[in-house]
Design a protein around this nucleic acid. Structure first.
Lengths: 344, 344
DNA sequence: CTGAAAGCGCTTACAG
DNA sequence: CTGAAAGCGCTTACAG
């Protein structure tokens, strides 16, 4: 079957290319009879208008960019992969496609050019970013140049560009984790913070501390640690703490579940049993958390809903709808498993 | 900064659009001096040629489609997600982008149109498929219409279209699993087969049976079961077998690791300990397999290498290189953990 | 080495 | 309701 263009379709249907275009785009001002006549030829020839022609004439691409920024060996982290899938499936529900890039950072010249090329070649209508720092000159530049930019875990209350769309974790996540542990009677709580360039880590840190002060807990320097969103990093942080601590805490709050997995290994190696000796709590609701021994108690987020909202609002912006909510904070909920015990 | 087109860049640089195009595309027939003069204007204005113009003039899209076909709730399966990432990262190494779709099957009219639209609108230079049946009319049609189609786990020795590219598991996988169990002294072996519409499942079945005959093992109907590439399905298959069997086997070969995870749960529920009472072996090398209790022994494949090859050969076909290997069979290797014990 | 010109396929504002 | 025409931005074969 020869591939036809709109001129040939028009000729076969006995109409002009304008009319073919009107039918293809489903415009109202075509009488049913004409529409059917044209559709018949379109279907018989499996005619699909070429995207490049449509783009040149000013149509949208119907494609969103998805940019995953991470130093971590991403293929080994399961949670990150599910984000992709939520985005792809949410976009498909609107008939949009997803073009994906994985980048180590947004500061290398090569990466910056990769992103700019995708935007400025107009391969996409908007870009969704995951894993950015809360300050990224590239993001500022894209926004300034009118590109629709959507970010997960990124927040600047003072910026209200209509082309900036964000989805965030609720900011009191850390406080709720501490409240839960205090409810179990814990008073000696260690915190493994995350990368402070991420908005969520900063807020978690602030709310951990605020809650500890509210509960009048001792905040010991040796119980304040740092890890990335990587298992190995949580492992090192915990191992170091065990080695250096004069007094062990009774509970450890990890900034994220991946770090918590590393904490498990470090405690196991030191023969410190969870939760008898030390309770461990994570944040995220990582799919692996329920397979841990013991299953990890973790403050869980509905990422499907979160990314569904982000994608929906992004497409609304692409399609120039009004009153788009530029930011949403998503609440989490504690999933209690077996890694935290009551202090008696 | 106003966005310029090639005419405006040409004017600023004092050359013609032809020359701008030659510089952008890095053609040799431009003297260094002219090139620098033009590059200066290009860089100052962050000029990127619009893709739609390039496409209309006959360039490639530099994009590959990735079509994931699965009934399973994909977001919950980690292995599948890593395939995405291997493909994305392999393609990026060639400066290609990946456009992703997730579809339940290739038989629904809606899904067929989704795929055709992507190909025939010329959004992509080629499509990579994962999870197809070994017979798919849509695939045949795309090949017949000259589209470059690449498939994982798909093989027809008689078809040798230059635009059909495949990557497969080695065909004796099942035999190697049986050989291993026989080496441990097992004689009563149950098999949980996979979906026979998948080339790999068919070959695994054939090679399980051939090896069992070679080792003169009893092949009991009640030990021959079926499961999909989903944990719940492996669970049901194993549970049913336990309930219906007159005599329990000493080992269970699962067609894939996800099914093996379900087998674990079914055995645990029946208080049959692994590997003391029954040994379990999987196939894939699923990232979760090492976290199982006990860690799962599984015949493991290097999917990074497999998809790297598939992507590389696909791009070679897009770029019309010669002597492209249309199919490769990839060998696996046994990763021995703790789920199989020796029969004494 | 370089420019003028042709050509790629669509949509839409305009005129009727 | 419908067609002729303009316009979108690029590349490349051709001529010089």
């Amino acid at each position: 079957m020869k591939k036809l263009n709109s001129t040939e379709i028009a000729k076969l249907a006995g109409v002009s290319r304008s009319t073919v275009s009107r039918v293809v785009n489903g415009y109202a001002n075509v009488p049913a009879e004409t529409r059917e006549k044209v559709m018949k030829v379109i279907n018989e020839n499996e005619y699909y208008p070429l995207l490049c022609g449509q783009l040149l004439a000013g149509k949208n691409t119907g494609t969103l960019g998805f940019f995953w920024i991470s130093n971590a060996p991403i293929a080994s982290d399961f949670l990150s992969s599910t984000f992709f899938i939520h985005v792809i499936e949410s976009a498909a529900a609107y008939n949009y496609l997803i073009l994906t890039s994985i980048l180590k950072n947004l500061t290398d010249e090569e990466n910056i050019n990769w992103v700019k090329r995708i935007f400025f070649q107009e391969r996409i209508d908007a870009g969704i970013f995951v894993g950015t720092n809360n300050n990224e000159p590239l993001i500022d530049e894209l926004i300034a140049r009118g590109k629709i930019v959507s970010l997960f875990d990124y927040y600047h209350p003072e910026i209200t560009a209509p082309n900036l769309i964000t989805a965030n974790f609720e900011t009191d996540t850390g406080g709720k984790v501490i409240d839960y542990l205090c409810g179990l009677g814990h008073k000696k709580i260690a915190v493994i913070d995350g990368n402070m360039n991420h908005y969520s880590s900063l807020k978690r840190h602030e709310s951990y501390i605020a809650a500890m002060q509210r509960h009048k807990l001792e905040i010991r320097g040796e119980w304040m640690r740092y890890a990335d969103i990587v298992e190995s990093s949580g492992y090192s942080a915990c191992k170091e703490m065990i080695a250096q601590c004069k007094k062990l805490p009774t509970a450890i709050c990890a900034n994220n579940d991946s770090a918590a997995f590393g904490v498990y290994t470090a405690l196991e190696e030191a023969n410190i049993s969870i939760p008898d000796k030390i309770s461990v709590i994570g944040i995220d609701g990582h799919p692996r958390s329920k397979f841990q021994k013991p299953p990890l108690t973790t403050f869980t987020f509905d990422f499907n809903q979160l990314f569904g909202s982000l994608v929906g609002r992004t497409i609304a912006a692409v399609e120039k709808q009004n009153d788009i909510i530029s930011n949403e904070f998503f609440p989490g909920s504690l999933v209690e498993r077996c890694s935290c015990s009551r202090i008696v």
